[in-house]
């Protein structure tokens, strides 16, 4: 797939379109259905919350949307490209071009400093001046004095801010956030969410936010509620 063909398809289509999505896993006790007939689409620039109780399939859905996993049946189009048509390497390429991530457990690389963690996605796509860009974004999230610190030397809130900087540094079209405040106290959580929405606005990113926090979900333009693997309502 070339970059040109991707650009053409992108202009007119939703950034994400999901049709009849099903996900089953085989366990020792038989087949377990996690998602059934899920359908929705998300337009560029939208902010969407995916909510539901533990075990409702939120994180599985997020993994499928990012192409981290493959569905049992159904179609997912990311930027107009059907993920089913791509192999794992093709999906990886798509992610490197369009997707940014924020995780509940931060997922910073322990042997990398804050700045190096932010530089990494730029280095993987061989972008120019990774050091400068990373530094600028870390300053934007208020960590200019922590550039050379390792994750274990940072507080939870600071680690998540580094993760935000890493997610936005490649200017992704789509940001997937999985319970970004799940590991933080409520005050720090609020600060992080503020920062997330600010950056989202500044960089004009589409945001898909997985959370079980109704208050947080209500800050998004749309809400998709999952229950036992199916969409119960779209608000």
């Amino acid at each position: 797939m070339t970059e040109d063909s991707l650009m053409k398809r992108r202009a007119e289509e939703p950034i994400i379109a999901v049709e009849n999505l099903c996900k089953q896993v085989t366990t020792s006790e038989g087949t377990l259905t996690i998602l059934t007939s899920v359908n929705f689409s998300i337009k560029p620039g939208e902010t969407v919350a995916v909510t539901g109780a533990s075990g409702s399939g939120k994180s599985t859905l997020l993994g499928l949307l990012a192409g981290l996993d493959v569905p049992t049946s159904g179609i997912i189009r990311l930027a107009g490209v059907s993920l089913a048509e791509l192999d794992e390497d093709g999906r990886a390429y798509l992610r490197s071009q369009y997707v940014g991530f924020v995780f509940q457990s931060f997922q910073l690389l322990p042997s990398f400093t804050a700045q190096e963690n932010v530089m990494l996605p730029l280095e993987l796509i061989a972008a120019a001046d990774p050091g400068l860009k990373a530094r600028a974004l870390l300053e934007r999230v208020g960590l200019e004095h922590r550039l050379q610190h390792y994750p274990r030397q940072l507080s939870g809130g600071e680690q998540q801010r580094v993760a935000l900087a890493r997610a936005f540094v490649t200017l992704p079209k789509l940001l997937l956030a999985d319970e970004p405040t799940g590991n933080l106290d409520s005050k720090t959580g609020r600060t992080i969410i503020e920062l997330l929405f600010e950056l989202n606005q500044e960089k004009n990113t589409t945001l898909v936010l997985v959370t079980h926090d109704e208050a947080l979900a209500s800050r998004c333009e749309r809400m998709i509620r999952l229950e036992a693997g199916t969409i119960q309502e779209e608000v």
Partner: peptide, 16 residues
């Protein structure tokens, strides 16, 4: 493993 999973998540291909 974690680092590599993150590389893959950020778009690094198997060959990379």
């Amino acid at each position: 493993f974690d680092v590599t999973a993150m590389f893959r998540c950020l778009g690094a291909q198997q060959s990379s």
